[in-house]
Design a binder for these strands. Sequence first.
DNA 1: AAGTGGTCTAGACCACTGT
DNA 2: CAGTGGTCTAGACCACTTC
Lengths: 239, 239
Amino acid sequence: MQILLAPENQIQETKPAREHIYEYLRKAILNGDFVAGTLFSDGEVAKAFKVSRTPVREAVQKLEAEGFVIRIPQKGNIVQGLSLIEVAHIYSIRKVLEALAIRYSIRKITPEELEQLKHILQKADWHIGHDTMDELPLNLGKCAIEFNTVLFESCRVPKLADLIWQQREILGPFRIFQPLINEQLGGRFKTRHRLYEALVKKDEKEAVKVWEEHLNSSFRFWVKKRGEGEQKDLFYEFI
Amino acid sequence: MQILLAPENQIQETKPAREHIYEYLRKAILNGDFVAGTLFSDGEVAKAFKVSRTPVREAVQKLEAEGFVIRIPQKGNIVQGLSLIEVAHIYSIRKVLEALAIRYSIRKITPEELEQLKHILQKADWHIGHDTMDELPLNLGKCAIEFNTVLFESCRVPKLADLIWQQREILGPFRIFQPLINEQLGGRFKTRHRLYEALVKKDEKEAVKVWEEHLNSSFRFWVKKRGEGEQKDLFYEFI
DNA sequence: AAGTGGTCTAGACCACTGT
DNA sequence: CAGTGGTCTAGACCACTTC
């Protein structure tokens, strides 16, 4: 795989090598540096990282378990891509999981967490008012992640939060976020404001509805961005 | 861990050793042979299986990723138990995931699959009519698994089916099934009959409702079986 | 200081691929 | 039948614990 450049970030930390490798490969896939369909072997990676093949194999096994990579017996590892249909499926799964999380949050969120959410929203508003067009997407992205982190923690169901992040990460946080922000700017945070209000009022129906709409529009954006005329088939795939 | 007996099933197949070990440990945990809280090290297992520590480590890493085991840095691996609260969470997650699968199935199930489901139900009825009390639980259990397999395949969303089986397996298929069958015998399959009818009629609301009730009663059974007076706290945990 | 556990390396071995 | 890829072993090394 000529794609993989030797990583300068060979920061010798205390973390096990397989974790470095795992994170490096995962990021590369999510960023799209590592194009879907690319074939690579453990040996190549081992050489690039100057380690033996064992830690690489372990890293790749983890990636395989999470669906980022497919290991084909005597061929090598293939970077997994996502068809639009699979994206639709993931969004459908996210809708039910995140709706469940919100229903838990309504019951369990603490006043402190509500305060934190409010604070993050204020920060986002400040950025919208003061940032240059260059900085804004990045900062707003950070705020969104902070908001979601607090939100999904507040449900107090760790396993559910894990599942949600797992699904979210498959979609790749970076690939889509920049242009999404540019296009929909404030909209993203208006829905978060509405969600916040619903959480304060403990209005479960409204909270779930807001968030589902949020995800619907997020998915519509995906379709628009890389729909290859196949939108019609998606009717049965996104529910 | 004095618990682990040397496995007689050292069936030298073509499968990698780590898979054998993974499956062995996983089954042992699910069966309850491997009591929650047990501490063990890779080395012990390696010795018991007469392999080196590398494949064991890889097997345990996989178990850790799936939440069956926790690896504690300089201590060893601990078999993960489930509190009743966590069981409640898993049932809540299962409800939304399986409901989604059924909504997909309503749209996508093929006539052949409906035929298969019908056939499995007939087989189950036959067992209820003809089996001895000894055989019945096992056979009915097999039918249930067959039914579920066809059902969750029929949604045509592989990732969703994976997630569902993953959640189901955490609960341990064996630990609970025997007594459950004995107690509720035909009831389990009455709900499956009703689900089948709803699928035929493409009645989404009814299908989802039937299945959610099915899971509710399944969870109630868990609580009854090992509720340690903490039922009250569960009110907020199972939704 | 000895012991235990975790990680990695080097290299052997085997299975499959592809001329 | 050489080449590549996947798996495992033996053993070294290091970190942390325990006495």
